[in-house]
Design a protein around this nucleic acid. Structure first.
Lengths: 337, 337
DNA sequence: CTGAAAGCGCTTACAG
DNA sequence: CTGAAAGCGCTTACAG
């Protein structure tokens, strides 16, 4: 595996390391190196199968051209799609993206952050988990370039890219109300992250505006026990004597499990109960009637986050970093119409 | 961002860099360093917020504890799930996984391989794209630790982990035959990769064994034009005068688009046409009748691949690497029963 | 028990 | 137009 180094080429050609480095990294502008020498260097580099060692380069330069991306669950299509766009965008600027997974665990997020710092990433893109404020705060204090994605902490002063969750949820709930629903239930995670709370507020306020304020019914599902908690809630909701005619699912994973659970009980969508959910879910194409959904601009979220981060990385030396908050609009899609 | 280095700690405590390094990397066994000095070092490291610089460590040690994973499409759940398990397994051995995407493009695979080599990954895990033999071959010639996943090239002598695609396809086709299908169509990619060809052979042989050899009908879909090609094929198959009573989809993406296309034409599954596909697809839970599928042992594929790769990395110096080929069994699932 | 020194492969002022 | 030299932060033989 031991390959050719700049030194090997320099020795062979009897020139200095500096000259070889200059030529090979394309910095021999303004006739710094004579044409013949330059050509000879390039030719031998090719011949000797020279591969630059970016580790050495990073050490010397003080940056690694690497971005650390920490997502909550890479096997969730929202995040894998996000990762895809982030990588595409980062590549344009010559950055490599290292992805890891926390599985919504605080312990893991701490480990992952340390690992990335040790590997000298130039900046962080993080989908933070519940209770991870202190680790994010630490990064901010250490002036590490950082952009939060999809979620944020009001107490932590840093840039983030999210959607307007309150509005998205408000409009989604309104769609159910417009369709005549009177008893609308929200399925959400048992989670204190603000974006989740905002989705709850949007739901509550929509009910209030419609004079349905006495009837909120929120089912809080544990992420780690999603399947059983959902089944239990669905059982309760559709037990004799209960009446539910609309459900809003606050995330794609919740809607996936929820709709499945409802179907197993032979409850008809939308006849028995109307549904709206967050995120486009291809699976719902196979239902007899499409389910309206809140579409998040995933590509844009990813691109903007990368742009913000790179700005920070570039500006690092100079002024104190300006905090930028991007709240993008999500759009309600209703294929019924 | 400029942090504390070993040197800073050494200077502060007036000991040598060597001593600090030894203590901080936990190599002060056998009373190499006195207890008091060690404790002082650990305390100041904590106080000064010391973060080891793995870039420097990698340069010095000649390895980066990093594995490069190249997949064909991270937004495809088969690959994102695979990535998830690979990361989990690699983490156990202290390796970080860097993931990138080729989107089935040969050009990209070349770029990605070079990028990873420049970043000094210790080994490669690759889902190779069509026509990428030469780049894989190059890696083999350069003795770079490497394990191919999901796909392989007969002409390239290297380790790989795949499933028994021929058998899986044979059995899937047989299931259709057992259910009484006489006119069975295979939807596959227009692609010369052996695993795809094996899926085709399995289908052909199953027909032959059943005396249906005159009736093979293979629809080859272009990956880059999946939607239109599938719609066109479905149109042809279900035009007047044609008869099709069974379809085998050779990949999960094909089945996703295919089933959707069939449903749009109001063709009933399984009454009008019976279907079997590769890979579990959660979306199909929402169909009135479940679709039988070939279940690949994704976790096992990922784990075995990591294990094989780490063996190679560890053995690197010594003997010529033994080539290991793992052909795992896939299982046919039929929830109808 | 501890220190001085070399070196991993690169880049970049500096000197000529 | 080109070279000699220092240094990024770490580890590890070697010497004491």
């Amino acid at each position: 595996m031991k390959g050719t180094s700049i030194k090997d080429i320099a020795k062979k050609l009897e020139v200095s390391n500096a000259t070889v480095s200059l030529v090979l990294s394309g910095k021999d502008k303004d006739g710094r190196v004579s044409k013949e020498v330059a050509e000879k260097i390039i030719a031998t580099a090719k011949m000797m199968n020279y591969q630059p060692n970016n580790i050495a380069r990073s050490l010397r330069m003080g940056h690694s051209q690497t971005i650390g991306l920490i997502v909550a669950d890479i096997s969730n299509s929202f995040f894998s799609t996000l990762a895809f766009y982030i990588q595409e965008e980062a590549e344009k600027y010559g950055y490599t993206v290292i992805i890891t997974n926390t599985n919504e665990s605080v312990d893991k997020i701490e480990t992952m952050i340390n690992m990335f710092r040790n590997r000298q990433v130039d900046g962080f893109l993080i989908v933070p988990t519940e209770y991870s404020e202190e680790y994010i705060q630490k990064l901010v204090e250490d002036h590490v370039p950082l952009v939060l994605i999809d979620r944020y902490f009001p107490s932590v002063q840093c840039s983030y890219v999210v959607i307007d969750n309150y509005r998205a949820s408000l409009e989604a709930t309104r769609l159910l109300i417009e369709q005549g629903c009177k008893d609308i239930v929200l399925f959400t995670y048992k989670n204190l992250l603000p974006h989740i709370l905002e989705r709850k507020s949007g739901y509550m306020d929509a009910l209030a505006y419609a004079g349905l304020a006495e009837k909120p019914c929120v089912k809080e599902i544990r992420y780690s026990h999603i399947s059983e908690d959902i089944d239990k809630s669905v059982d309760e909701l559709f037990a004799d004597g209960c009446k539910v005619d609309g459900i809003l699912f606050a995330t794609n994973s919740l809607s996936m499990y929820g709709v499945r659970s409802i179907m197993r009980k032979n409850i008809a969508i939308p006849n028995d109960v109307k549904i709206v959910c967050f995120d486009k879910n291809e699976a719902f194409d196979f239902l007899p009637t499409p389910i309206p959904y809140v579409l998040q601009p995933i590509a844009e979220i990813g691109q903007k986050a990368v742009n913000l981060l790179i700005e920070q990385i570039k500006a690092k030396q100079n002024a104190p970093k300006a905090i930028q908050i991007l709240k993008l609009a999500a759009t309600l899609h209703n294929d019924l119409l």
